[in-house]
Simulated assay, not measured.
Amino acid sequence: MDGHDELARRFEAHRGQLRAVAHRMLGSFEEAEDAVQEAWLRLSRTGGDGIDNLAGWLTTVVSRICLDLLRSRASRREDPYGQDPRVPAASDANAPEEAAVLGDSVSLALLVVLDRLAPAERIAFVLHDLFGVPFDRIAQVVDRSRPAAKKLASRARQKVRGTPAVPGADLDRHRQVVEAFLAAARGGDLDGLLEVLAPDVVRRADPAALPPGVAPELRGARAMAEGTVALRERSRFAVAALVDGDVGVVVAPHGRLVLALTVTVEGERITAYDVVADPARLGRLGLGVLDLPEVSARSRTR
């Protein structure tokens, strides 16, 4: 095995971790793969001599590539809210990996909220809070001082958490009801939907969320449940999240927000929900994740 083959072998040992970092930073499997490949090209040009910590070096390089991509995306205003990306097909090359990530409600909700962060905030948060990278290294990536890097991560963390507008006990109860609604929708369970919807439930929707000719307002549990069952495929990409201070739903194929539901819960049932699809309205919603991944206390201070 020559030197280049050995370097390639060492790189491949880190590819999975690098792809995970890049995907959380970019929210796109394709762009993440491109960023990782660019890191390999830079490593192959540089060579491994003099790199004591290859994992750290590669993470720094991938992070800088992602930061440049995020800044370029922000300047072009790519991926506006309200566009409905292609739903992954079973034959897609990334389908198994993508299904695993999109099946994790924390990851999907987090990707949606991360899209609202400034590029440097997103990089600092992902590196520190999701992967435990120390602030000294993060400061090098974002070209800031260590205190400034800590402030970026802290500010991002506050935005990701959102601001609940209801007491914790009510938030937990609302979450149970909303998640029961989503579970029934994903399973095409008409009886389960009828159990969680109030008899006189009201659904209001932006016209952009509906097929032509469908009324924006719908009343009654059965009519709403039957309509929800019909949207079973899309419900695969729907997860509970904090929406305007209470538990709601975000629908986000590929982590790109296309719909949000603001949900009213009374007792143990949903009495109303609004489907928001208008890009301007989506952009004004306050969003947050209901479960924020925690790193160790030691990592949080590094």
Rank of each mutant, 00 (worst) to 15 (best):
residue 166 V to Y: 01
residue 147 P to S: 08
residue 178 V to S: 02
residue 195 E to S: 14
residue 158 Q to L: 14
residue 153 A to E: 00
residue 173 R to H: 09
residue 175 R to K: 09
residue 216 P to S: 13
residue 177 V to A: 05
residue 203 R to D: 05
residue 169 A to N: 12
residue 209 A to Q: 07
residue 162 G to E: 05
residue 177 V to T: 03
residue 133 V to C: 11
residue 209 A to W: 05
residue 178 V to I: 03
residue 125 F to M: 01
residue 206 D to W: 04
residue 197 L to F: 09
residue 145 S to D: 10
residue 161 R to L: 15
residue 158 Q to M: 10
residue 124 A to T: 01
residue 221 A to D: 13
residue 180 A to S: 15
residue 160 V to S: 05
residue 170 D to M: 10
residue 159 K to V: 02
residue 165 A to Y: 04
residue 148 A to C: 03
residue 135 F to E: 03
residue 216 P to W: 08
residue 168 G to F: 09
residue 214 V to W: 03
residue 144 R to F: 08
residue 194 L to G: 13
residue 199 P to V: 14
residue 161 R to D: 07
residue 189 D to C: 15
residue 173 R to A: 12
residue 139 A to D: 11
residue 135 F to T: 05
residue 210 L to D: 15
residue 145 S to E: 09
residue 145 S to C: 10
residue 123 I to G: 00
residue 154 S to M: 07
residue 168 G to S: 14
residue 222 R to K: 15
residue 156 A to S: 00
residue 221 A to N: 11
residue 189 D to Q: 11
residue 146 R to H: 07
residue 135 F to K: 05
residue 126 V to C: 02
residue 126 V to E: 04
residue 217 E to Q: 14
residue 184 A to F: 06
residue 180 A to W: 04
residue 139 A to T: 10
residue 150 K to E: 15
residue 198 A to D: 06
residue 197 L to C: 11
residue 122 R to W: 00
residue 137 R to L: 11
residue 214 V to R: 14
residue 198 A to K: 05
residue 161 R to C: 13
residue 153 A to T: 03
residue 211 P to Y: 11
residue 162 G to F: 07
residue 161 R to I: 11
residue 196 V to N: 08
residue 125 F to Q: 01
residue 181 F to R: 07
residue 149 A to T: 02
residue 134 P to G: 15
residue 157 R to E: 14
residue 204 R to L: 09
residue 173 R to N: 06
residue 178 V to Y: 03
residue 200 D to E: 13
residue 124 A to W: 00
residue 156 A to R: 00
residue 141 V to K: 03
residue 218 L to I: 12
residue 181 F to Y: 12
residue 127 L to H: 02
residue 133 V to N: 04
residue 165 A to S: 12
residue 136 D to R: 15
residue 215 A to M: 11
residue 169 A to Y: 10
residue 143 D to C: 07
residue 172 D to V: 13
residue 132 G to E: 14
residue 217 E to N: 09
residue 120 A to I: 04
residue 206 D to L: 03
residue 163 T to S: 12
residue 215 A to L: 14
residue 178 V to G: 04
residue 121 E to F: 02
residue 198 A to P: 00
residue 203 R to W: 07
residue 127 L to R: 02
residue 186 R to I: 08
residue 184 A to K: 05
residue 155 R to E: 15
residue 201 V to M: 07
residue 204 R to E: 11
residue 178 V to P: 03
residue 147 P to G: 10
residue 130 L to C: 08
residue 150 K to V: 11
residue 213 G to N: 10
residue 181 F to A: 00
residue 157 R to P: 01
residue 166 V to H: 00
residue 197 L to W: 06
residue 211 P to V: 12
residue 168 G to H: 12
residue 167 P to R: 12
residue 220 G to R: 03
residue 143 D to A: 12
residue 219 R to T: 07
residue 222 R to H: 14
residue 202 V to N: 07
residue 167 P to C: 11
residue 177 V to M: 04
residue 182 L to V: 09
residue 197 L to P: 09
residue 192 G to W: 07
residue 203 R to F: 07
residue 173 R to Y: 02
residue 169 A to K: 12
residue 200 D to R: 13
residue 206 D to V: 00
residue 154 S to T: 15
residue 172 D to Y: 08
residue 163 T to D: 08
residue 144 R to Q: 10
residue 129 D to R: 09
residue 208 A to L: 14
residue 161 R to V: 08
residue 212 P to R: 13
